[in-house]
C-alpha cells in the first residue's frame, strides 16, 4: 500500500461524504459502498462506545441517541491521538461546554468532569493511603507546618450545581427525585483501595483539600478554607480526607 492509498482510505473513513477511494474492489466487481461502510461504522461505533463507557451517567441524563450524536461530533473534532483509549475523552467536558445543543443542561459538563475523575482514579497507581494513626502520634505544635502528598487517584471538583446528587441519581447510586434545594456541591474522588469513592465535600472542604493537594502547609490550607466558608470544621474535614484516602504521606 502506498502512503497515498492509506491516506485516502483514512480520509474516506472519517467523512461519509467522501467517496469510497479508487482501487478498492469486491469479488463481484461492484463498487464496495456497503463493504466500505462496515469499516466506517466500526470506527464510529467503536469510538462512541469508548466514550459512552467512560461517561454512563452523562448518557443517562441526555439519552442514548443524543449522547451518541454528541460523542460522534466530539470524535470528528477531537479524534484519539493514541491507541490508549483509557484516557480518551479527558477533554470531553470542555467540548460539551461549547456544544450548543447541550447548552440547556448547564450541569452536564461537570457531571462529565466527575466521571472523567472517576476513570482517572480507577486506573491510578496503587498506593496505600496515609494511616491516620501516624498523624495522631505527632506533637500538636508540628501540625501547622505539615505538607501532605496527595494520592494519585485524588481529584477535587467544584461545581455551582448539586453535582454529587445529580451524578448519584444518574449513576444508579441514589433514587431519582426532584431536587428541591438546588445548591452548589463540591466533590472529592479517590480510590484508596479497589473501589472508587465519590464524596460530597462539607463547606470549605474542597478549597482546603485543593490547597493541601497543591502543596500548601496545613495552616495555610485552613486559612483558605475559612476564607471560603466561615463554618469550616478542621477536624471533621481532616478526618474525612484521611478516611477517603486523599493522602499517602506528610512531611
Amino acid at each position: 500500500m502506498s502512503l497515498c492509498t492509506q491516506t485516502r482510505f483514512a480520509a474516506a473513513l472519517a467523512d461519509p461524504a467522501v467517496a469510497v477511494p479508487p482501487g478498492l474492489t469486491a469479488w463481484n466487481g461492484l463498487q464496495p459502498q456497503r463493504r466500505f461502510a462496515v469499516y466506517r461504522n466500526n470506527v464510529v461505533v467503536g469510538l462512541t462506545g469508548a466514550i459512552a463507557s467512560r461517561f454512563p451517567a452523562a448518557q443517562t441524563i441526555v439519552g442514548e441517541a443524543f449522547f451518541s450524536a454528541m460523542a460522534a461530533e466530539f470524535i470528528r473534532v477531537h479524534p484519539p491521538r493514541s491507541p490508549l483509549l483509557l484516557s480518551y475523552g479527558d477533554d470531553f467536558a470542555d467540548f460539551v461546554e461549547r456544544f450548543e445543543p447541550a447548552n440547556d443542561i448547564a450541569y452536564l459538563p461537570d457531571v462529565i468532569r466527575l466521571e472523567a475523575a472517576r476513570g482517572k482514579a480507577y486506573h491510578a497507581a496503587d498506593v496505600a493511603p496515609l494511616d491516620a494513626a501516624k498523624l495522631a502520634a505527632l506533637p500538636p505544635e508540628r501540625l501547622a507546618d505539615l505538607v501532605f502528598v496527595p494520592h494519585p487517584s485524588l481529584s477535587i471538583l467544584r461545581s455551582p450545581h448539586p453535582l454529587v446528587t445529580i451524578w448519584a441519581m444518574n449513576a444508579g447510586e441514589a433514587e431519582l427525585r426532584s431536587i428541591e434545594d438546588w445548591t452548589a456541591e463540591d466533590a472529592m474522588v479517590a480510590r484508596p483501595h479497589m473501589t472508587v469513592e465519590v464524596r460530597r465535600m462539607p463547606p470549605g472542604g474542597a478549597v482546603f483539600l485543593q490547597a493541601l493537594a497543591s502543596g500548601e502547609r496545613l495552616a495555610t490550607a485552613v486559612e483558605h478554607a475559612i476564607e471560603n466558608a466561615s463554618a469550616f470544621d478542621l477536624s471533621a474535614n481532616l478526618a474525612g480526607a484521611l478516611q477517603t484516602g486523599a493522602f499517602i504521606a506528610f512531611h
Binding site: 500500500m1 502506498s2 492509498t5 492509506q6 491516506t7 482510505f9 483514512a10 473513513l13 482501487g23 469499516y39 466500526n42 470506527v43 467503536g46 469510538l47 469508548a50 479524534p79 484519539p80 491521538r81 493514541s82 491507541p83 483509549l85
Partner: peptide
C-alpha cells in the same frame, strides 16, 4: 491490519493490500 494513520487512532482493524511494499 492497521489502525493508526497520521497519529490518529481509528480503533478498527483496517485492511491492507498485499504487495512487495507492504
Amino acid at each position: 491490519a492497521w489502525s493508526t494513520h497520521d497519529r490518529v487512532f481509528l480503533n478498527d482493524l483496517l485492511p491492507l493490500p498485499y504487495t512487495d511494499q507492504t
